[in-house]
Design a protein around this nucleic acid. Structure first.
Lengths: 228, 228
DNA sequence: GATACATTCAATTGAACAATTGAATGTATC
DNA sequence: GATACATTCAATTGTTCAATTGAATGTATC
């Protein structure tokens, strides 16, 4: 028993939210935070923009309630807020991939690739991990892996992969993953592994999507990957 | 074998897409088109903005591929493009409803309402339509109803409802729906019906959401509502 | 309490966007 | 083919947003 027309109120906020998503740098920052929490300095470094600029974009995201911050020592750590934040990004990405030809082409070009490059889905990897006939390989950097990773995944950062091939089995398929759907690290890793005689494919989605999916499924204990 | 880093390309397009959603008028236009196709004149009238202004916003939406247009007689009819356009709007709305307190309050205030006002879900109505113990009532205007409606729904425009109460049964619950989740017509209709001694509740989502859901479920013949 | 350092604020400049107006285009109908 | 009318284009003005810089704040650590 207060506001008059809810539609206008809702849409003015939705529009504000959409504008908050409407900048490349902010999408990149959200992408980074989908891996865990980071200081401003770290976010600036990883996104390749200045500290002041990153700070302002982060404030924009905080203002609309999609990013939260907490202090830890002398740093403030930024992370995605609770709620379906990443899901909204995913919905926009899905729309872009479906309706914008240039995006569709770039993605299939890069990731859909050759027939035997057919990426593996999260559902598929679940079953195959149970059977134990695959190795899950996380090729993100150390800090990202430490903040969280798929159950049962081993970690070799992409820039150390070539020197660490002996740690990988040749009798099982190596499924590589990285930050998310549009991260090229795992794609490059698969190419490297194949050049060296391994059987390898890419996980279609990455840590970000896995985490978002497991968040939505709340605390349903049966949904995570199991190492066996 | 063309573009370098797909991430930046994807995100620049996603950002453009997000900005296209980032205006109240455009969200309203998308809302209207979620009911069907309309001429520019009709869209301007229904959204309450000038024809020239509506045209420009529609061009913005066409440019990013979320709206299409076809000529019919002396009018151009605008409609949502194929693909998960409405789904993206829904994801943003869900985020706003969850993360922005003002929105959450306004919505529960208006639609969540009293205990026995508990809105009915699309899933629930499916089962109850089969049992035949409810009447589905579409209170949108004639033109909207004609462009498409839920299977089995009867139509009484909201501004004719009070004069047409005799057409409704008193021994079954009347489930009213309108354009979508944030449309107040069905909410008002429920209030009117209750004042006149009917048992009545509101469908939580409206035609837009139903149509989007049935579109996603492709041509799965088992998913629509059945009249019996 | 003083220092160091991470983050935020404030002020500036340039660029992009929103709305309005009036003219121009293009298609149907006569 | 001429006319009527729906839609789009072009030009304008005011507003909002992006990025940079340098100063200011605030918290941890010594």
């Amino acid at each position: 028993m207060s506001s008059q027309n809810p539609e206008r109120l809702v849409y003015s906020h939705v529009a504000e939210l959409a504008r908050a998503f409407g900048h490349e740098h902010r999408l990149k920052l959200l992408d980074l935070m989908s891996q865990g929490e980071w200081s401003l300095d770290e976010l600036a470094k990883r996104s390749g923009i200045s500290v002041a600029n990153a700070s302002q974009h982060l404030q924009t995201l905080r203002r609309v309630g999609v990013v939260t911050a907490r202090r830890a020592g002398k740093n403030v750590l930024f992370s995605l807020a609770d709620g379906p934040v990443f899901d909204a990004v995913v919905a926009m990405r899905a729309l872009a991939e479906r309706n914008i030809a240039e995006v569709r082409l770039a993605v299939t070009d890069y990731f859909g690739g050759l027939d035997d490059m057919e990426p593996v889905s999260l559902d598929e990897i679940r079953a195959r991990m149970r059977d134990g006939n695959v190795v899950l390989l996380d090729v993100r950097d150390e800090a990202e892996y430490r903040q969280g990773h798929l159950p049962g995944a081993i970690h070799i950062a992409s820039d150390e992969l070539e020197a660490s091939l002996s740690r990988l089995p040749r009798d099982r398929e190596v499924i590589a993953y990285c930050r998310g759907r549009y991260c090229i690290l795992s794609s490059d890793a698969v190419a490297l592994l194949r050049r060296n005689g391994f059987r390898s494919r890419r996980l279609e989605d990455g840590y970000a999507e896995w985490k978002a999916a497991n968040r939505s499924e709340a605390s349903d204990e049966t949904t995570g990957l199991r190492t066996g």
